[in-house]
């Protein structure tokens, strides 16, 4: 399996506090991965380390096998990013700003820049000074700046912050259109993460507490069983039940078998219905689990 992004043993201590604790994960080519967690969980710190803005206390990030620590220029060459709000030079125009960033890469074709500007729909505003831009325009220019080098990895920290519904829709369709780019998105909008991402990483108090596939290729689905005796049913299906109610993640065949088993054990099954794979519920469950530890 080819991993485009590999984060290995990253820890970060800031002012004596360990804000990231031994973070490890890998991401395959072309995947869109969401990073979710409460405020102060370490998401932004992790993304800042992954883009070279922060230095890790231990560990390293590898892009296409190249170490960010050992060979920063080569490793970051194929990475585009927006960390928090896209902030450009306010007294320069959008075009001048893009020219500055273009000059920092080797051999970027002017036609590619024109194409990107067209894709993010900012052609008309390029001549205006950045300080006059609306939030949506800033975000678009940020995307253009992040895509100048046709990156293989795109890192977006809270890209939906302050965007209106139209901006959100545009961003969503834009990210979905990036077929061969591996994208890492951190956002508070769980519905957006659920909509955009193939996988999601839960982070809490500087640790990865879970990783979950959102759009898998199996036939498994979440279903809720409504029964007369939940305690007995859970005892029977302890290795399959998810959450407080009798929620099962299984294929159609397995659901049928479970139903048979419940009935055979004198548990009345009133209803079986498919439930959505609700990230929000799962997110709050994860937070709750963490707090109970």
């Amino acid at each position: 399996m080819k991993y485009v992004v590999e984060v290995k043993n990253i820890s970060k201590i800031i002012k004596g506090k360990e804000v990231l604790k031994n973070i490890n994960f890998s991401i395959e080519e072309g995947k869109v991965v969401g990073l979710i967690g409460p405020n102060g969980s370490g998401k932004s710190t992790l993304l800042k380390i992954m883009t070279g803005l922060y230095k890790p206390t231990t560990g390293d990030t590898f892009y296409n096998g190249i170490s960010l620590k050992e060979n920063y220029e080569k490793a970051i060459e194929n990475v585009g990013c927006i960390i928090e709000n896209p902030t450009f030079y306010k007294d320069l125009t959008g075009k001048e700003n893009l020219e500055i960033f273009k000059s920092m890469f080797k051999d970027i074709d002017e036609n590619i820049v024109k194409e990107i500007v067209k894709i993010v729909n900012i052609e008309k505003s390029l001549g205006k000074k950045f300080k006059t831009y609306s939030l949506g325009m800033k975000e678009r220019l940020g995307l253009a700046g992040a895509l100048l080098n046709s990156p293989r990895v795109l890192i977006l920290d809270e890209p939906t912050n302050g965007l209106d519904p139209l901006g959100l829709k545009e961003l969503r369709s834009f990210i979905k259109g990036l077929k061969f780019t591996t994208t890492i998105i951190s956002s508070h909008l769980l519905s957006e993460i659920e909509n955009l991402c193939d996988e999601v990483i839960f982070i809490k108090s500087g640790e990865i507490i879970d990783r979950k596939i959102l759009k898998n290729q199996t036939n498994k689905k979440y279903v809720d069983f409504e029964v007369d005796d939940y305690s007995k049913a859970k005892l029977l299906l302890s290795n399959m039940a998810v959450g407080e109610n009798l929620k099962i993640y299984a294929t159609d065949e397995e659901i049928s078998d479970i139903n048979k088993e419940l009935v055979n054990n004198n548990i009345k099954v009133y209803r079986i219905y498919e439930t959505s794979n609700n990230l929000e519920d799962e997110y709050f469950n994860k937070l709750k689990e963490g707090n109970n530890d």
Partner: peptide
């Protein structure tokens, strides 16, 4: 302070 380094320093330059 104006956060422009968040973009400028994430480009392939030492």
């Amino acid at each position: 302070s104006e956060e422009t380094f968040k973009i400028y320093l994430t480009k392939p330059k030492k």
